[in-house]
Amino acid sequence: MSAPDDHSGEDHGGLNRPRQVASAPEGRVVPTVRVQEAPFDLAAESAALVAGRVDVGGLASFVGLCRADDGLAALVLEHYPGMTERAIAGIAAEACARWPLTGCTVIHRHGRLEPGAPIVLVLTASSHRAAALESCAFLIDWLKTRAPFWKREEFAGGAERWVEAKAEDDAAAARWEMRGA
């Protein structure tokens, strides 16, 4: 299935394991965290995470978008400036501690976002796919329950309501709790 030169992040083990060494020095990954009103550029952020490196075998991405449920006209995201950045940085640091990541980017937008608009970007890079995919899922699950954002829905007729926290989001976040910690 895999070509001999396939260094796509699959863990072939043994002789087929990629032999390149990291171009960046060993050490702690410093996650990129931004909270902004402006849109983000998935391609540019992805390129930035792997630029100049040859130790990245997998890059996982999650983009959360605004859905047009029930005639929604817009979502208005409020957040807690200061705490938001701290909370996301803490969650990203937790991901870097749990998985061997080479890079991590989290960008969360706030303000008024219309259906189809991207809301949140999570990027994780690692030598192997499992770490990238798992840490990406972990990050978005914990962002939903641990980052201080609140969504208000605006509807075409002028009605509005605050989105309520969902039990399934708590359950999704809870599956990453460390047992015995």
Partner: peptide, 10 residues
């Protein structure tokens, strides 16, 4: 000290 509803980001 801040008070708010359960968070709904992501």
């Amino acid at each position: 000290v801040a008070f708010f509803p359960p968070v709904t980001g992501g």
